[in-house]
Write a protein that binds this DNA or RNA. Structure first.
Lengths: 163, 163
DNA sequence: TGGAAAATGATAGTCATTATTATTAAAGGT
DNA sequence: ACCTTTAATAATAATGACTATCATTTTCCA
C-alpha cells in the first residue's frame, strides 16, 4: 500500500508505509469529496458516511441498502459510480473474490491479512511488515506500482490437528 | 498450494513445497478425467489438451475458441462446466480480476504467485521463497499447519503508468 | 449390447456492473 | 441571491460473464 498524495494530509512522502490508524480521521466528508475533484452532493456525503463508519467490508449493494433507509430516492448506479471513484483514487480498496460481488473497505484502516483454518473455518488476522516490504520490492522489480494485494493463508489450526 | 492427494501421484506428504515440474507430466487426459470422477468424453479430452499444453493463463472463452477450431459443435457451457470441475478439485487454479473474465491455469506447474495489472490485465508470475518462508512462520506462530495460500498482487504496470 | 446415469448443446436466465439520457442540482462569476 | 455552465442524478436499458434448464445424445459396465 502506498500513501495517497492528498493535500490536506500531513503526509511525509518518504514514509514507506501506511500509518496504523485512519489517516483521514476528523476530515469531513465534504473535504474528501472535493479532494476527489467532484461536486459535493447529499448522496456522496451519505455514501461516505456509511463507508467510513460502517462495517469494514461491504458490497456496493449493502451501501445502497443502508443509504436507502435514510434516502429512499438514491439510485444504485450512484453508489457504484462513487465507489468506483473512491477506488480509483485509492480511498477505498476493492477486493473481488470468485464471482461474488466486489467488497470494498475504507483504505485508511489498519491493513491485515487472513489465516484461515480449512477444517473449522476459524480466521486469524495477522500483519507482517516483512511480507509487505517484499511485495513492494517484487512489484518494483517488474515495473509495477502496487495498489493492493490479497494474501490468504489456509491451513489446519492446532485444535483441529489434535482432533 | 498443496499437493493434490490423487492416487496415481507419487506424493510425499512431508514435502513442504511443491515440486518444480508438472506432477502430472505423462499422465493421460483420460486418467485425469476419471480421477475427477467424471465420464471420459471427447470434449473433455479436447479441453484438457488445450489447458495442459496451451498458454499458462487462459479464459474460458479462449479455451472455447481454441477447441472450437477442431470441434465446432462444442458448446461453451461445456467448457465452463468442466473448468469449474477442474477448479473445484484443484487441477486448475482460478484467478479473478476486477470485472474481467476469470483466468485459469493448470495447477501442477511450478508454484508461483501473480502480479496483475489492474489497468490492462497483464499477469506476471513470480516466486519468492522468502515470502513462502515467512508464511510458514506466521502459520506456525498461530499453531496452524499451512496447506496452501493465495497471494495476488495488484498494481499498474510500467506501460500503463506511462499511458 | 442394453439401459441407467451422466454429459452435451442450445438457449434462456441471473446477477453485478456499466452506459445512456433526460432531468435536477452544484459551483463560480456577476 | 441570480444566472449559467457544467456535473450529478435516477431510472432504465444494456452488457457480459457465467449458470440453470432441458430435450437429446453418449458413456460405460452389467
Amino acid at each position: 500500500m502506498e500513501l495517497n498524495n492528498h493535500s490536506f494530509l500531513p503526509v511525509s512522502e518518504n514514509q514507506p508505509h501506511l500509518p496504523k490508524n485512519d489517516q483521514y480521521k476528523g476530515v469531513p466528508h465534504k473535504k474528501i469529496i472535493r479532494e476527489l475533484g467532484l461536486k459535493v452532493t447529499q448522496q456522496r456525503i451519505q455514501i461516505l458516511e456509511v463507508v467510513r463508519s460502517g462495517p469494514s467490508h461491504f458490497t456496493a449493494q449493502e451501501v445502497f441498502e443502508i443509504v436507502s433507509e435514510s434516502n429512499p430516492d438514491i439510485g444504485f448506479a450512484t453508489v457504484y459510480r462513487f465507489l468506483k471513484k473512491l477506488s480509483e483514487q485509492s480511498f477505498v480498496t476493492e477486493v473481488r473474490m470468485g464471482g461474488m460481488p466486489a467488497r470494498y473497505e475504507w483504505a485508511a484502516k489498519d491493513h491485515h491479512d487472513h489465516l484461515t483454518c480449512s477444517r473449522c473455518g476459524k480466521i486469524v488476522e495477522f500483519e507482517n511488515q516483512k511480507i509487505e516490504d517484499l511485495q513492494e520490492k517484487i512489484a518494483l522489480r517488474h515495473g509495477f506500482k502496487l495498489t493492493h494485494h490479497i494474501l490468504e493463508l489456509y491451513g489446519v489450526c492446532g485444535e483441529c490437528q489434535r482432533a
